[in-house]
Design a protein around this nucleic acid. Structure first.
Lengths: 217, 217
DNA sequence: CAATATTTTTAGACTTGTCTAAAAATTTAT
DNA sequence: ATAAATTTTTAGACAAGTCTAAAAATATTG
């Protein structure tokens, strides 16, 4: 069994690994958990003894298979709870994160399996992120950033890169939600902004926005 | 805000107060939390500084109004989660306690209010215990122990005193559930056992069982 | 009411997870 | 390739919450 703190480290390493593939530096973990590198070193030694990470001094850490499964299970719980909050308790997608951060640590296999069933075995959370299955496998979809679409191309909005509540509320305001079809009408060279069509309406979107929206062609 | 540990102490004191009315001894708290009296003394000092209990050395503790409200809110969360587990996730009444012990510490007023609504504003948990309202008020019902009924009297089964899973599974086996009507046919003097009628069937029940079932006449 | 038993508190220690400051290793750059 | 900059680890300290053992207060009882 893992402590709250150990689970948070596992999750952080899991997310960092999915970005970078290499061994994860203590500094990177420290940044992501808003703690100090020295604290990370200590914790990583403990995780290494528990056989969830491989660790060699100065070489960064990697999750073991067991570690990956354990971390994926925490992510699974987090995302299932997010679906629950949105679908059953009328939370909006910018309100769910902090509560799910708490709920993900609840220990009860039956709870999470029944929750999964209650929700109809969802495959994605409210931000479009995939929900790992019981074995920790994730279905990776070939989504791309809106900013990589060429003029004239279109696709379905399937996820967000930034899931801060600021960004999510901005999307709400602009009526940009998952599942909507977006067509690139124009790409401006001088500021990389986009002119897009959504819901039959024309909308101008900054580079920053386009870099944080995932599209499936 | 209160730590996990502080919340558990508050809850323990709350339950002990509802039994005994007097100042609660550190020993009683220690027993209920399976810890040592010396640990309780330390924690009680902390709780006293946070103004949730009144504490004078060697005199035991009492909850302040603020402490009562805080504790009642934890109990409210515990019992609402129990209802959720039974009503929405197909848990049986003997499986909910340990999970609810974890869920009761989740901090999100919106979560608990929405959960309350999802469940249709229940007034009692699966064991018949009343759910405190948002202000911490509890509707106390004039329930009595089955063992205090006289021969020939009957009433509705409205709660359990012992909510250990052993006892609850025993009741399941005997098909004794909340809401059923129980009539006392006979009281045996030599062992205080009862002969009761339930569902039109005759059943013999030991003193211990009769002392752990609540009835409303 | 004094002696004994019980309860409660204090004192000091231990664990977990964190921190700062300094030392060690690695990386970068000239 | 060696010096400088950066990253990582070590060492020692601290807070929260717990424990054991001993001291102090309260309660019991003859």
């Amino acid at each position: 069994m893992f402590t709250l703190s150990e689970e948070n480290y596992l999750k952080a390493i899991y997310h960092l690994e999915s970005d970078s593939k290499k061994g994860i530096s203590t500094n990177a973990i420290a940044k992501s958990l808003e703690t100090k590198a020295s604290s990370v070193t200590d914790m990583v030694k403990k995780l290494s003894e528990k056989e969830v990470v491989l660790y060699k001094k100065y070489q960064g850490v990697t999750l073991t298979e067991f570690g990956k499964k354990t971390a994926a299970n925490i992510v699974r719980k987090h995302r299932l709870w997010e679906v629950f909050l949105v679908e059953k308790l009328n939370f909006s997608w910018d309100e769910v994160h902090d509560v799910a951060e708490q709920l993900e640590h609840i220990k009860s296999p039956k709870l999470i399996n029944q929750l999964d069933a209650l929700l109809g075995f969802p495959t994605h959370d409210p931000h479009g992120d995939p929900i790992p299955d019981k074995e920790g496998n994730v279905n990776i979809v070939d989504k791309i950033l809106l900013s990589t679409l060429n003029k004239g191309e279109s696709g379905v909005c399937v996820g967000v890169n930034d899931s801060s509540s600021e960004f999510l509320r901005f999307l709400d305001k602009k009526k940009i939600t998952l599942g909507k079809i977006i067509t690139v009408l124009e790409k401006e060279d001088f500021d990389d902004s986009l002119s897009i069509e959504i819901d039959g309406e024309k909308l101008s979107i900054s580079k920053k926005i386009a870099n944080n929206l995932y599209i499936k062609k």
